[in-house]
């Protein structure tokens, strides 16, 4: 299955060359799990990494490096596996995306009858992350973004003036984009913002105070 909304090609390049971390890394990695297209693009960029590796000069190893390595392998030394240390919520988010998660059992903070969220701790300075849950038909009041908002649709779908966003879609909005998304089915998203949303409708000032 492929998606309609993708990270920019420059972000995929950054990702393939090991320059994305934290939330950005997580969002692109998860998008690629669903989007074969971007997954292939990243794989092709990685081949440049392989070629570069081949072209590097040799740095002398410590004496007996291979023997030391075999010793570690045979003693089953504890090695940090690539993903073993990642935060619990990355695992949880991956499960929701993989349709294995029991999302309704999570500790949702219901803000209205049809809208809930779970704030996520993040080490990325200047970024706020949360899981959001909108029930089918829920309309988020018209808003802009004080800075930037990245959304990864984990399940279900929502739409706004520019289109429909489904599972795996990677959506980017800036302060220039004003929209009022509507959930077209029960929808769970990972939302990362650099600043809280700014509501612009009639009740904007009240909502800004109430939700932020």
């Amino acid at each position: 299955m492929s998606c309609n909304h993708h990270p920019a090609v420059e972000s995929l390049l950054q990702h393939a060359s090991g320059k994305t971390s934290g939330l950005q890394h997580l969002m692109i990695r998860l998008h690629c799990k669903v989007c074969d297209h971007c997954d292939k693009v990243v794989t092709e960029f990685e081949s440049l990494g392989g070629e570069t590796l081949e072209s590097l000069s040799d740095t002398p190893l410590q004496v007996g490096a291979f023997q030391a390595l075999m010793k570690r392998i045979q003693s089953n030394a504890d090695v940090t596996e690539v993903d073993s240390n990642r935060s619990d919520y990355a695992h949880l988010i991956e499960k929701i995306l993989g349709r294995e998660g029991k999302a309704d059992k999570l500790n949702w903070h219901w803000r209205t009858k049809r809208f809930a969220e779970i704030p996520l701790p993040t080490e990325d300075k200047g970024f706020d992350a949360k899981l959001i849950y909108f029930k089918k038909g829920m309309k988020v009041p018209r808003h802009t973004h004080r800075d930037k908002e990245y959304t990864l649709v984990l399940s279900g779908a929502f739409s706004d003036d520019s289109g429909e966003y489904k599972r795996g879609d990677y959506v980017y909005k800036t302060s220039h984009d004003e929209h009022s998304p509507v959930a077209t089915s029960d929808c769970i998203c990972l939302a990362v913002t650099t600043q809280p949303l700014k509501f612009t409708g009639t009740f904007g000032p009240v909502l800004n105070w109430f939700l932020n």
Partner: peptide, 14 residues
Amino acid sequence: SEDIAVDAGEQFDL
């Protein structure tokens, strides 16, 4: 990219 954002995003249908 013109936008010095982390990501400007792409939208296209295949």
